[in-house]
Each structure stands twice: as C-alpha cells, then as structure tokens.
Nucleic acid binder design. Structure first.
Length: 293
DNA sequence: GAGCGTCTACCGGTTCGAAG
DNA sequence: CTTCGAACCGGTAGACGCTC
C-alpha cells in the first residue's frame, strides 16, 4: 500500500493500494471542495450553527417526502448564524446526497411505483434502494438531477501554486490544475518509493519543510483543512479539521474552523468561500513571511 | 437494558463515457 | 483498444430512537 494520505502529518493514518482511492480519500475526506445541502422538508429546519447535534438526530421527525416538490425547496440561502454553513442536511459527496434524497424524500406515490415494480421484478426496482440510478421513473430521475445541481455548494478552490514534497525534487505546479498535477506527480514518487525502498530521492514527506505550499494552503482561514494543534501552540504541530463539522462539535474535538467562516456575507446567492486559490506570487510571499517567523 | 429498525459515513468494486 | 476519472452500487459499521 504505497499511497499514504497527504495529511498524514496532521494525523490521518489512511494508506491506499490504488491511486484512485487515494485521491478520492483526500478529495472527499479532507479537501471538501464542494458539498451538497438538502433543505427539503424537515431537513430545512436543521441549524448548522448550533452546538453539535448527534448524528442522525434531525432525521427522526416527520420528514415530508411529499414536500419535495414544493416551492420551499429553493437554492440554499438560509445560512445559519456563526458557522457560515447553510441550514439543512449537509453531505460531502454527491452520491451520498442522492442516496439521502432517494431514501428520505422520494414522494410516496413514486415509492409505491418502485415497490410495485420491485415485486414484479421490473426495471425501476433496480434503482429503488440504496444509491440507485439508471432506470426509474423519468420525472423523478429528472427531478433528482435538478436537485443535485441546486444543492451543490462550492466551499473553496484548489491552490494555484504548489511544490513537490519529495526530497530533492524541485518540481513546481501552477494554475488550476496544480493540485491534480501534484497528486499525479507525487503518486509516481510514492510508487517508485514502494518499489525501490532504498531510493532516498523518492522519500515524500507531506507537510514537511519541502511541503510548505500544502501547509500554507490547507491551513488558510478560507480552507481550514488543517489547524494548529490546540489553536496555536507549537509550530509544525498540525491536526485535521473537518470543514463541515458544526461548531462546538464533540466527537472529533477539532471544529474551530467556524471562526474563520464569514456567515455575514451570505445573502442572496449562497457563497461560502472566495478566492482561496492563491496565486503564486501571493503564496510565495506568504511562505516567505512564514519562514521569517 | 436488549433487540430491532432507521439512517448516515465510509469503503471498495463496478460501470460508463471521454480522451489519448 | 486502453486508460482514466466520475459516478454508481452494494455492503458494513456505528449512532440513535423506539418498543418491549
């Protein structure tokens, strides 16, 4: 398993055998560039500014599946107080949001159709349970697609300047593809390191002295993927931060990111973060500043 | 408190379409 | 044709509420 999580320096111990899984893990579990908000029926009542609510709690009471097609379901605009997160059920992956839609908000008549089809062994049943997809009732599938688009919110953007974390590698990456290029590049280092353990040139030290661009970006107030342990303290001591964790969260105990989010700016269109992809000049300037500390 | 049902989080495999 | 990435799909684990 050559692919260790790029945030291992912040405490993530995940390792992966395939590049695909490695990239997916980093993207969905740590970066959270996008998320999906369900504000239908009972979900709309969930405030994400309050102290942490136990998982699943808000889904208990009278979910109005039949209200899905009502005008109350509009673009997420009702950002809650202190976190910047909108009210509603939040999902970090599109397929999870879709799964939730199918399970919780399928109108009763559609559910009935699926059930009948399942018993008859016909097509719509294939997508009636779980994530579902493909065949089904066309109007409902169309509706789901629209809801998926509407619910999607961009949290932050990828960096536009990065360097390679491998020792003795001066490779730089710029532009909107910088992150992907770096991941691909680093994957080759990791691969080679796994196959040739004696090669020091392939040693990748995420978050180390050769990886300041990652640390700078990930800890930026508009990104907050990692944060200083204990909210300050020792340089180099980082811990993971889940950007979608509600303020006051308890089960990870690291949810101070909310302080950085600017809920007051969310009026009209829901925009959580702005310009988090720092240009090269700005990033290097920040790095210089950091080194002077 | 045990057992059960519901729901979300996460993982890993599969499918499918686009690009080379 | 092959490779790759995005999305889909199915399964499992854990948390929680409800009932007995």
């Amino acid at each position: 398993r050559p692919f260790k999580c790029v945030f291992d320096f912040a405490g993530c111990t995940s390792v992966f055998a395939s590049k695909n899984e490695w990239k997916r893990h980093v993207t969905f579990q740590h970066l959270v560039l996008h998320y999906w908000v369900c504000q239908d029926g009972g979900c709309a009542e969930q405030s994400n500014s309050d102290a942490h609510l136990p998982r699943g709690k808000i889904h208990r009471t009278g979910l109005g599946a039949s209200t899905l097609l009502t005008p109350s379901h509009t673009t997420p605009t009702s950002a809650s107080g202190s976190t910047g997160l909108p009210n509603g059920s939040i999902f970090n992956r599109k397929d999870l949001y879709t799964q939730h839609l199918r399970r919780m908000h399928t109108p009763p008549n559609i559910k009935k159709s699926y059930k009948a089809a399942k018993e008859a062994g016909t097509t719509p049943a294939n997508s009636a349970s779980g994530g579902g997809g493909g065949g089904g009732i066309p109007e409902w599938e169309e509706r789901i697609k629209k809801l998926q688009q509407r619910a999607e919110i961009e949290r932050c953007k990828l960096p536009e300047y990065m360097t390679c974390p491998a020792a003795n590698c001066d490779q730089e990456f710029t532009g909107t593809e910088a992150w992907d290029q770096r991941m691909e590049h680093v994957a080759r280092h990791l691969d080679r390191a796994a196959n040739n353990k004696s090669s020091e040139a392939e040693v990748v030290n995420f978050g180390g002295e050769d990886d300041s661009t990652l640390v700078e970006w990930a800890s930026h107030p508009d990104v907050t993927v990692i944060q200083k342990r204990g909210g300050g303290g020792v340089t180099g001591e980082w811990e993971l931060n889940n950007p979608l964790e509600k303020r006051g969260g308890t089960h990870t105990g690291n949810s101070t990111h909310a302080q950085h989010m600017r809920a007051g700016e969310h009026q009209g269109e829901m925009v959580i973060m702005h310009n988090t992809h720092l240009p090269k000049e700005k990033m290097t300037e920040k790095i210089k500043t950091r080194l002077l500390w």
